[in-house]
């Protein structure tokens, strides 16, 4: 780069500086008020937030994840409730469909004793049992 060019460029930047300094922006009193209000807001928001949600950007994803996990747990509990092994036949009557109740009642009759012979836990006959169950089902449907 020639010396003449360097001088020319130097003058160019001096001129730019002079022109920029002529219209130098100065902060207005309104600017200080706005900044003070903004700082107060940011400071207040920081104090209100717990350490778990210390960063605003993290709040929403965590809230969504928590809501999703809770809803999944509720759905799983609801689906598993009717088939809980803790429920007896009498309790299940109120939640199972009639078809399942009939199957349950049929399987209950097939118990075997120590000799390997089938026996009925109820003293009533199969015919009596089935009549009783169908009556119960009819009552439930009503």
């Amino acid at each position: 780069m020639k010396k003449k060019d360097i001088v020319r460029l130097k003058r160019f930047f001096q001129l730019l500086k002079i022109e920029q300094d002529k219209i130098k922006p100065v902060p207005s009193p309104d600017f200080y008020c706005r900044v003070a209000c903004g700082l107060q807001k940011i400071g207040g928001a920081d104090k209100d937030r717990s350490s778990y949600f210390s960063y605003p950007r993290r709040t929403l994803p965590w809230a969504l994840v928590t809501a999703a996990v809770i809803s999944v747990i509720i759905v799983v509990c609801l689906l598993h409730a009717p088939f809980s092994p803790k429920l007896g036949v009498d309790e299940a009557l109120f939640v199972l469909t009639p078809e399942v109740i009939v199957l349950e009642s049929l399987s209950e009759t097939e118990y075997s004793d120590s000799n390997g012979e089938l026996f009925n836990p109820d003293s009533k006959s199969d015919a009596q049992n089935s009549i009783e169950w169908s009556n119960r089902i009819c009552m439930l449907r009503l």
């Binding site: 920029q20 219209i23 130098k24 922006p25 100065v26 902060p27 900044v35």
Partner: peptide, 10 residues
Amino acid sequence: APYLFRLIGR
């Protein structure tokens, strides 16, 4: 603020 105004004003 005055310095930052001058700097950004460049």
